[in-house]
């Protein structure tokens, strides 16, 4: 048997070897992961650039004043711009009210239990229901009377309701995240000053969650603007080309996304490329602006509310 000192020296030598090998392995793993990371980043970025580049380069020259202000199918886009705004704002209002209330309930009031589990399960399931199915539901419920004769007909109201159902789980999740991001400290501070739960929610938690809620709303707005399938069945493929400038919710009205689809459906292989591309340019610009605003506002508000940079 070797002496304690010898054994100690041996063990230490062995340890040095093992550690060197481990460092070497870690280094290789690190390099591989770095490579994978850069590859993925490059793929994502080039996909985005390709879509943007293709659509914008081919379509920007068709975006003219006449196109923006005209209302003829395929040569004018004014009604679609208006409808997009109308339906987006129209859906965001109920989404915000219901989504934030539900999020307050879930994050501040609900006890863990079967009810909350069912709510979560329903919400998660709803997020994976294809939007065309929600569109069909909207068609049956709001456009027709369950398929037996008309109810409202194709209408912006039907579109707004379909989009509300479609996006509710997203709004709920995003609002819940925003509320949970508010430090627990504020709750304690408020309660310790004698505030009840409702006062704590309205005066301490909601104000502190505003940055997150604004960002959440804008992200949902981006989803709404890009939505097509749920609207084809509800607000309709084409609105009137005259008299479209009205706040009446029971008018049919197509959004930019739906418009691209109808230009295609009308004449799949030949015509209206210019209109489709130009509309797509507008849509992309809108979505980029909204996502950019969401990021910008989120960071600015975060700074203001936390006193530090994000």
């Amino acid at each position: 048997m070797s002496s304690i000192a010898e054994s100690l020296v041996k063990t230490m030598e062995k340890q040095t070897q093992v550690r060197a090998a481990r460092r070497q392995r870690a280094k290789i793993t690190n390099q591989v992961m770095n490579g994978v990371f850069w590859l993925v980043a490059a793929i994502v970025l080039s996909a985005l650039l390709f879509v943007l580049g293709y659509v914008v380069l081919n379509g920007y020259s068709y975006v003219t004043v006449k196109f923006l202000t005209g209302s003829d199918f395929a040569t004018g886009i004014a009604p679609q711009l208006f409808n997009t705004l109308y339906i987006t704002v129209g859906a965001l209002i109920p989404l915000f009210v219901i989504g934030v209330s539900a999020a307050i309930y879930v994050s501040e009031y609900a006890r863990q239990g079967w009810f909350l589990n069912i709510l979560r399960f329903a919400s998660d399931t709803l997020t994976s229901v294809p939007s065309i199915v929600i569109g069909l539901l909207g068609f049956l419920l709001f456009v027709t009377n369950f398929g037996n004769g008309p109810r409202w007909g194709f209408s912006r109201a039907a579109g707004i309701l379909a989009l509300t159902i479609l996006n509710l789980p997203w709004m709920l999740r995003a609002a819940e995240d925003a509320l949970r991001a508010v430090p627990k400290d504020f709750r304690e501070a408020s309660m310790a000053l004698g505030a009840n739960k409702f006062q704590t929610v309205t005066r301490a938690i909601l104000p502190a969650a505003i940055p997150g809620l604004v960002t959440a709303t804008l992200i949902v707005a981006g989803r709404i603007i890009g939505e097509t399938a749920a609207l084809i069945y509800t607000s309709g493929e084409a609105g009137p080309t005259a008299g479209w400038f009205t706040l009446n919710p029971f008018f049919a009205g197509d959004t930019l996304s739906v418009h691209i689809y109808s230009l295609f459906a009308d004449n799949p292989t030949t015509g209206a490329y210019q209109g489709r591309l130009a509309t797509a340019v507008l849509l992309l610009v809108l979505i980029i602006v909204i996502n950019g605003t969401a990021r910008f506002l989120g960071q600015r508000l975060h700074q203001r509310f936390s006193g530090k940079k994000a």
Partner: peptide, 30 residues
């Protein structure tokens, strides 16, 4: 009333993301 008669100060300073004035006025406004 009890919580107002026994005020509490926490380990980590936890002012609300409000103005200095609003922070101090919070309890009275409640």
């Amino acid at each position: 009333e009890l919580r107002q008669r026994l005020g509490m100060v926490f380990q980590r300073p936890n002012p609300f993301p409000k103005s200095i004035f609003e922070n101090v006025a919070y309890g009275l406004k409640i």
